[in-house]
Write a protein that binds this DNA or RNA. Structure first.
Lengths: 212, 212
DNA sequence: GTCTATACACTGATAGAC
DNA sequence: GTCTATCAGTGTATAGAC
């Protein structure tokens, strides 16, 4: 636990405490799942007594909900880059770069998201039906316009998006398996770059992407 | 619960009971995770009193271990098709077909496997280090030989395998999300075929695969 | 082999002193 | 706001009748 400067306002200290708890919670939820995680363990990782967690978050489920919502925001923000692109090479290439970077820097978040969806999205079903669906449909329109302009082959945009999600998130969600198959060593900078290059090469070539 | 014919031998009845429990366990572990699953719920799904589970499987963990091992066997068996192929179009194409079929027919198993790996493979770490590593290295050798013979582009075979795993398993592990984005309807036969075709088209074209 | 009843441990949540 | 002590509920596992 890090001592907080006394110069902080009450609001800042509350936000700081919440943030510390959520960092610990994300890690524990990712490693143990919602059912396997315990408030005691989250408290230990955060360096606080268990009762403090219940002071800032009324229930375990409320804490979990906040963690999942946070991840979704990070994930959506990374997708902005998509819209600034003039064509599939720039747009999908940059999107793959951004998602691979998140898998590398935020693997716990990706795992919590995967676990939530795998269990039927009991907590974020409404986000899937509103925000995610709208975002997806918007991106499908963009990809379709690239196809119509002859900038890429007539691939179903929806399945292309699924492939990008699946492939990039795999390096976070199945990171343990990948590390085991890498002589139980974490991927080096060069290996992450090689992974990203492989993914981009196969997908961009596979859809016949041309620069705009 | 289905009444068992009295013609069965004791051994057959034991195997039959174990199988019924394991089918229920796979479903419950997939939906709730290891920590969220309860022996009571598994017993209810299997149509047996809770105590019977402990008669056939000493602990919850032992039952879970058997479920994960079973999935791994199914998964390995589907990969045999890889070795009968003369080139990447046949080999990788058939492998994608087989894995998509497993995702469709065995989604619960795929989710249990994903969950196990995401949580650091506490139960099947030894399989990752032995069987999976050997299988992977063998397949890398095959793919490399295709590259050397000019049958496909010089893609890192390891990342190609990861892409096939990620993409095909995504349709099982994230099936709930995909269904939600499909107007909350399960994919039809035609949609599964379109998904499989999209995946095969992009990957085979992306690696510049040629028939042998 | 099968089931009911129960022991024992642990978890989420809270009361109340400071 | 923070912490200790504790409660109520649930979970795994087992004892013992049939």
């Amino acid at each position: 636990m890090v001592t907080q400067p006394r110069s902080m306002s009450k609001k800042d200290r509350r936000l700081e405490s919440e943030r510390m708890i959520m960092v610990a919670a994300e890690k524990v939820f990712a490693e143990a799942g919602f059912g396997g995680a315990t408030m005691q363990l989250i408290a230990d990782v955060a360096g606080l007594p268990k009762a403090n967690l219940h002071y800032y978050f009324p229930t375990k489920e409320a804490l979990y909900r906040r963690v999942v919502q946070d991840i979704f925001q990070v994930w959506l923000k990374a997708a902005d880059i998509f819209d600034q692109a003039s064509g599939p090479v720039e747009g999908i290439g940059a999107y793959i770069d951004a998602k691979m970077e998140i898998s590398r820097r935020h693997p716990a978040g990706s795992k919590v998201w995967a676990s939530e969806v795998m269990h039927g999205a009991p907590v974020i079903q409404d986000y899937l039906e509103t925000t995610l669906e709208q975002w997806t449909n918007g991106r499908i329109t963009v990809i379709q316009s690239w196809i119509d302009r002859g900038l890429m082959a007539p691939i179903d945009p929806r399945h292309l998006l699924y492939m990008v999600w699946a492939t990039t998130q795999h390096y976070a969600d199945f990171g343990h398996q990948i590390e085991t198959l890498n002589n139980s060593e974490p991927l080096t900078d060069a290996q992450w770059q090689a992974a990203t290059d492989s993914v981009k090469t196969i997908i961009l070539k596979g859809i016949g992407a041309k620069s705009a």
